[in-house]
Design a protein around this nucleic acid. Structure first.
Length: 287
DNA sequence: GCCCAGGTGAAGC
DNA sequence: GCTTCACATGGG
């Protein structure tokens, strides 16, 4: 309540920070043992685990901590989510492999821009592109003494003022015109990201897909990771491989059919199930 | 060198 | 409608 402390402790269980920060939903968290260091909105923050709790530290005393509680989704009861998964062999394996994996609740613009940049890129490269973008066009942030400089994620207005050549110099290749055009549509007010939260899933998805560089998959990522639509089910190459391998072995199944299967099979937290399958496929060795 | 990476949009049947 | 292709860049 005071707004004078830079450190705050939160009770915590069923929360794997590493899995959550490295599973391909957010791209700016960095591991500096024993801390995870990141930026959410205008806050630089580092977090570390102690028995049963999470210790969070900022560079400047925040007025409150609600932004962090919301971003990390600390109030979500993960056991309720996992209990709602279908009780089948693939999901049991994924839950065992990814225990404590959470979905974050990110800023819509950062999430949208990040996934426009994600197409046919490996996660490590997406991180590099975004780091360059933030370094060049973000606002420098206050960080704790002795820590490397960090910046905000650049606003739509800021990116609307750069050139395609500027963006290409961040090594984002053919994604540059998409990001630029989308930033300009949002900065100009032609497209309102705030309006989507109140829409039904399908309508919000259709709106997002009118943006350049945003197809079904990117739209579903934004709906799930930023707006919290629990039924959004991003179907990328990894999840497609997971579904085909685990649920439709030795059969030819179209993406459309996989979408229909996903919509009926995984229950009210299908988006979480998708993230478990994605992380499970990407981290399991052999088999 | 080759193939692939959390795809999308446009052009071709 | 569905299929094919180009699009930058870098890692394995």
């Amino acid at each position: 309540m005071t707004g004078v402390e830079t450190t705050r402790t939160f009770a915590l269980r069923d929360y794997d920070l590493e899995a959550t920060f490295t599973c391909g939903q957010a791209f700016r968290w960095q591991w500096h043992d024993p801390y995870w260091v990141g930026v959410t909105g205008a806050h630089w923050v580092r977090v570390r685990r102690e028995p049963g709790v999470l210790v969070a530290e900022t560079a400047e005393p925040p007025a409150d901590w609600e932004w962090l509680v919301h971003y990390l989704q600390l109030e979500v009861d993960l056991s309720e989510v996992v209990r709602a998964f279908p009780d089948d062999k693939p999901m049991r394996a994924a839950v065992t492999a990814c225990r404590g994996l959470r979905l974050l609740r990110q800023d819509p613009w950062e999430c949208l821009a990040s996934f426009i940049l994600s197409s046919t890129k490996q996660i490590v490269q997406i991180r590099q592109i975004i780091a360059r973008l933030c370094e060049r066009y973000g606002e420098p942030l206050a960080v704790a003494p002795g820590w490397p400089p960090m910046s905000t994620f650049p606003s739509p207005a800021r990116l609307a003022r750069v050139t395609e050549t500027d963006l290409r110099s961040c090594r984002m290749g053919f994604r540059a015109p998409y990001l630029l055009a989308t930033a300009r549509m949002i900065a100009s007010g032609q497209f309102d990201l705030d309006r989507l939260q109140a829409l039904p899933l399908e309508a919000a998805r259709a709106e997002l897909m009118t943006l350049p560089g945003v197809g079904r998959k990117v739209a579903d990522c934004v709906l799930l990771f930023a707006y919290g639509f629990q039924l959004a089910f991003p179907l990328d190459v990894w999840v497609m491989k997971a579904l085909r391998q685990l649920y439709f072995p030795r059969r030819r199944v179209s993406p459309q059919r996989l979408h229909r299967f996903a919509a009926t099979h995984f229950g009210p937290f299908a988006g979480y199930a998708q993230q478990y399958l994605f992380h499970y496929m990407r981290t399991r060795h052999g088999t």
